[in-house]
């Protein structure tokens, strides 16, 4: 499979603190790629840099390449138009915007958009179409609507930041199936998580620690390394777990 996203030696310092210390990552087209790591490893910062959000349009050094195009410095909208999108760990709430309107906005360039089907794929029925995307939805429902909006958009690459956070244990399998559906419908998924059990649904996984990539490979092996070494590591030193 050809790379859809290549992160080349990306370094980033925020407020004088190095957050990313030379990250290298290749995500292949059509795969689910999990980025696993403890809190503070730099995973969400990497996700922000890929989408260009949170005022992180470009790294201090290094390259982010999407389908042979350097996307450093591009605006969020321009990245989205190339086919990249992101689902937030805690999705935004919108006053006065219905689920139907939100899905239609997300999928406005998808000629095959079927908003009811998108909802059904995330385990919600069509009664949700008229609900507002605001505080009247529970955290779990909002998360499902967010994933439905990605299905509606049908991007080339979806960056999912902690898709499992705030989801009860019983619904984890649903979330895993939704992510697989995304992939099966042609979207490459880059999934940020700190739970090895959700990372195991990936085709490949990368372990990050202290702003560096430690290992990329089979999700089970990467998950095992995370479980046995990273979780117990209090100093968060990638060299202790055999990092780059």
């Amino acid at each position: 499979m050809a790379p859809i996203l290549t992160v080349n030696d990306v370094k980033l310092t925020i407020d004088g603190k190095p957050i990313l210390k030379g990250v290298n990552l290749i995500v292949n087209e059509g795969e689910i790629h999990a980025v696993l790591g403890p809190n503070g490893a730099g995973k969400s910062t990497l996700a922000s840099l890929i989408m260009g959000i949170n005022d992180l349009k470009e790294p201090d050094s290094g390259e982010i390449i999407f389908k042979d195009k350097l996307i450093n410095g591009l605006k969020i909208t321009d990245r989205a138009k190339l086919g990249i999108t992101l689902a937030w760990q805690e999705p935004a709430r919108f006053e006065g915007i219905t689920v139907e309107e939100y899905l239609k906005l997300s999928g406005r360039n998808n000629p095959e958009l079927d908003v009811v089907e998108c909802l059904e794929l995330v385990g919600l029925d069509c009664s949700y179409l008229s609900r507002f995307v605001d505080d009247t939805l529970s955290g779990g429902e909002r998360k499902r609507v967010e994933l439905a909006s990605i299905l509606a958009m049908r991007p080339k690459l979806a960056v999912l930041d902690e898709p499992d956070s705030g989801i009860d244990f019983a619904s984890m399998e649903d979330i895993a199936n939704m992510i697989k559906t995304m992939r099966d419908r042609g979207t490459t998924v880059l999934m940020i998580t700190h739970r090895e059990e959700i990372a195991e649904i990936a085709d490949r996984a990368t372990l990050m620690c202290d702003g560096k990539v430690v290992q990329t490979g089979n999700p089970k092996e990467v998950g095992q390394k995370f479980k046995t070494m990273c979780v117990k590591c209090e100093v968060r030193n990638p060299e202790l777990v055999g990092g780059e």
Binding site: M51, I76, T77, A80, K81, I84, A92, L105, N109
Partner: peptide
């Protein structure tokens, strides 16, 4: 909210 909609192409 703004960045979410922009990430959907608006």
């Amino acid at each position: 909210q703004l960045e979410t909609l922009m990430a959907r192409g608006l």
